[in-house]
Amino acid sequence: MQPGQPSRFEIVSRQDFSDATYLLEVRHPMMARAARPGQFVIVMSHEHGERIPLTIADFDRSRGTITLVIQAVGKTTRQMQQTCKAGTALYAMVGPMGIPSPIGRAKKVVCVGGGLGVAPMFPQARGFKENGAYVIGIVGFRTRSLVFWEDKFRSCCDEFILCTDDGSAGIKGLVTEGIRRAIAKHPDIEEVVAIGPPVMMKGCAEATRAHKIKTVVSLNPIMVDGTGMCGGCRVKIGGEVKFACVDGPDFDGHKVDFDDLMSRLRRYAQEERAAAQRWSENCRMKDLADAVGPAVELLELPDPFEDVKGG
């Protein structure tokens, strides 16, 4: 008996941006109609899978699809990198969750995307552009080979700054360097929106604090249900406890306690490492047995499996 046999969420296309970053376009016409910039979904790749929150990178109402950009970092996202091909389906996808980003009537805005955050930043930049704002896009990557959506992003910006940590593309430096330059050139910036790793968003908030520029960040804490039910995603905003899934995910960057967020993101670090390690081992075994298949490239995992409490 299988009550709740979920409908299939078909992956209609896939694109690989790098060794670790990939895009999935999933069919869900109803969600494509409902989605707004800044919202997220929760995805399960298979029946025994975990529920992972992913920010909606784009939605296409005419095609009836939702676009997700995923970085293979843990067991689930690496497994999805292998199994989620065009024509296959996700076990579950629920959303759009969270309060949509309020895309106001600011006349001059800076849209900052760091790494994977470039993807969900894009529909917001496009939204601001459609509302008639002067949009300064700043995107940051570690190195040139990781850059994606440069042209797409550039197309909705009046100015565009690409930053790489090693200077292999665009300017050398972090996105905060880009923000510094933008602020120096444009004293009339009304709003900065930043999406990316917590440490990057923290840097952005610090870069704008002295200038008193409104800075909105999109938080990505650990979640279970995404409907306000578990409190796992609680964050501290100006000393108050908020649930990112229903009270956010967007918050005033100047009020977010980023250190608390980063500490809480490490909560399952041990279990995550163990799961990833175990999964890699299984893949290696499978590849050894299956001499035809190409070897899976394995990430170096620092912690030995024995150290782990799980299981």
Partner: peptide, 12 residues
């Protein structure tokens, strides 16, 4: 009929 993965309020 049961429709799972449906967040009423946000999906519709």
């Amino acid at each position: 009929t049961f429709e799972c993965n449906t967040l009423v309020g946000r999906l519709f």
